[in-house]
């Protein structure tokens, strides 16, 4: 029984763990689930706070989960957790701002919108269509074209792309991101 239990904790689908948690109310299941993504949650928190506050935030988010998972029907736990994390951090920032009268700019921080869910699904299959998108690729600005080509077709890492092209690492990343987005738009127009 204990063995079985252990297996569930390790291998089960997120959805199964959520169900088990909802059914039994046992925190073990929730903890096993949370552990899978805790490093990501922590990483996201690091964007907003220092290490100690981030750790606190990670634990607070767990507390939030205890309540919220019982109340909400969650389809895609990972994406949902991402949004929850960001919102938690933003709320915390906001309350810090109010309490201390300190001005913390929220401008640079991305605000989560619904399309991030869509993004997740849309982004994935992009390679599948790569063959048919040469035309679109050619239409891209030079930097984006080279970066996308090297990253997706030649499977080079950011660093390699940067070395080959001489572009700045950070720019490479945004070239790829923007190139990918532009390609998608272009492909959609082709389809129509």
């Amino acid at each position: 029984m204990a063995f079985l239990h252990h297996n569930i904790m390790k291998d089960a689908d997120d959805a199964v763990l959520i169900l088990e948690y909802k059914r039994s109310g046992q925190l073990d299941y929730l903890a096993a689930l949370y552990q899978r993504y805790m490093n990501l949650v922590y990483g996201v928190c690091l964007r907003y706070f220092d290490e100690e506050s981030s750790k606190d935030a990670v634990m607070q988010i767990f507390e939030e989960l205890i309540v919220k998972l019982q109340q909400h029907e969650v389809q895609n736990f990972k994406s949902w957790l991402h949004v929850l994390t960001k919102n938690h951090c933003l709320m915390k920032l906001r309350s810090m701002k109010n309490r201390e009268g300190k001005e913390i700019s929220l401008d640079g921080l991305p605000v989560m919108e619904n399309d991030s869910f869509a993004h997740h699904e849309n982004g994935v299959s992009i390679e599948v269509h790569l063959q048919g998108m040469e035309k679109c690729l050619d239409a891209l600005p030079e930097e984006q074209k080279r970066s996308v080509d090297l990253f997706y077709l030649k499977e080079k890492s950011y660093k390699e792309v940067a070395d080959i092209t001489g572009y700045d690492m950070k720019k490479v990343k945004s070239y790829i991101q923007n190139g990918k987005r532009n390609l998608k738009i272009c492909m959609e127009q082709q389809d129509v």
């Binding site: 993504y37 490093n39 990501l40 949650v41 922590y42 990483g43 996201v44 928190c45 690091l46 964007r47 290490e51 990972k78 994406s79 957790l81 991402h82 960001k86 991030s116 993004h119 997740h120 982004g123 994935v124 990253f151 997706y152 499977e155 080079k156 890492s157 950011y158 660093k159 390699e160 790829i176 991101q177 990918k180």
Partner: peptide, 29 residues
């Protein structure tokens, strides 16, 4: 390079991971 590319590609499709990577990248320690 191969492993780096694999993770980067994963991050491209996974905003959560990308976000977390950014967070970690900001810390030197």
């Amino acid at each position: 390079n191969k492993a780096m590319h694999a993770l980067e590609k994963q991050a491209m499709d996974d905003p959560f991971l990308a976000d977390a990577l950014d967070g970690f990248a900001e810390r030197k320690s």
